[in-house]
Design a protein around this nucleic acid. Structure first.
Lengths: 140, 140
DNA sequence: TTGTCAATTAGCAAATATTGTTGATAAGGT
DNA sequence: ACCTTATCAACAATATTTGCTAATTGACAA
């Protein structure tokens, strides 16, 4: 993901406005390695801008995803998670707390079998490892 | 997935009741290769049992999943899909219509990198190929 | 600096998918 | 056939995300 300043310029360049609410969200996303939900970002944004609405958070996140600056992930935890890391990578998801971790690995063998591949226009390939993270395991 | 008759016995053996509604759902699931949603099954079940409720469909599907007779899949299409095929397999998902196809392939190199694997208790590994299916491609 | 205009905001309603609740009903062992 | 208990159907509730709208604000140009 680009820096908050660069994102402001990008928004302007694409006919969007660079508002204080958006800058606030850009800064929260910048450098985060967790995969926050819209609600999480909303909660954090409210600490700095009490009047911000959840609707605005969703709109900004959707805009960022449309511009390819963040990834909108559905990891099966009940709500979308947003990832400022847009490089090709995979995920390790905890079935207990829902937290996700990036996995930087290349799986060259992961290809659609020839029979099925012929008529399918492939867009993306995702690998999800599910299980329990250290935190949840030591909790019991 | 077991046959409708066997599932009826299994339900009784596990202290559940083998009702007409459940037999109807068992028969709909038996042998299907698509990955129906609860709503789809509900619509089909109503053709044979107009009084059946959506709640009963959800309950029966959840019971079947708890017994390991079907798989409850979240393929990022907005709702759960149910798969009577419980063998280890992966999926090809259309981002336009949401339909899913089974992929029987073994990806032996898909493993958690050693650094991350140490503290994680792995339960399952899923590979999802996303793109557009033939039907949706030829539609345009 | 200020005016103009379209994009954005906040707040609320609505849509979608799933689960909780409850009185009535019926399955299944005895 | 009877009795216990799970299940049923209908409705309400929850959770997440999107739709709508009047008022506001940013961006650009004069």
């Amino acid at each position: 993901m680009k820096s908050p300043v660069e994102l402001g310029e990008l928004f302007r360049a694409t006919g969007r406005k660079n508002t204080a609410q958006r800058q606030c969200i850009f800064e929260l996303l910048h450098g985060t390695t967790v995969h926050p939900t819209a609600e999480t970002i909303y909660a954090e944004a409210r600490d700095k801008m009490p009047s911000i609405s959840l609707r605005t958070v969703y709109q900004t996140l959707n805009d960022l995803a449309a511009l390819g600056e963040i990834q909108q992930l559905d990891l099966g935890t009940g709500s979308f998670r947003f990832d400022p890391n847009v490089d090709a990578h995979h995920h390790l998801v905890c079935i207990e707390c829902g937290n996700a971790e990036d996995i930087y690995a290349d799986f060259p063998d992961v290809q659609i079998p020839r029979a099925a591949a012929k008529d399918f226009e492939l867009t993306s390939t995702e690998v999800v490892f599910r299980g329990r993270c250290v935190t949840c395991r030591t909790k019991d």
